[in-house]
């Protein structure tokens, strides 16, 4: 049995393991936590807290960084 839960990451549907944390999500996406800012259900989650926030079905996560702009 490989149950997963459905979440939305940057507007796209994704599945994660039940109880996965934001830090684990970043690892699964091969993203360096120092290189992204994480918003979980519209709330910014600071880097030290990423390992303590678990994902639940329907969660919306935004992962942003700096790009070129004026």
């Amino acid at each position: 049995m490989n149950e997963t839960i459905a979440v939305t990451v940057n507007g796209e549907p994704r599945t994660v393991a039940p109880g996965a944390t934001l830090l684990e999500l970043l690892a699964a996406l091969d993203l360096d936590p120092r290189a992204v800012v994480v918003e979980h259900n519209r709330k910014i989650v600071r880097r030290p807290d990423l390992g303590g926030v678990g994902l639940t079905p329907g969660d919306s996560i935004e992962l942003v960084h700096f790009v070129g702009g004026g």
């Binding site: 990451v9 940057n10 507007g11 796209e12 996406l29 091969d30 993203l31 290189a35 992204v36 800012v37 935004e62 992962l63 942003v64 960084h65 700096f66 790009v67 070129g68 702009g69 004026g70």
Partner: peptide, 19 residues
């Protein structure tokens, strides 16, 4: 130097952070 805030490209085909 100004920068913009945008979603990380999850497929990571080319785009990376300006940093």
């Amino acid at each position: 130097v100004t920068v913009a805030v945008r979603r990380v490209n999850l497929d990571r085909s080319k785009e990376e952070s300006i940093l």
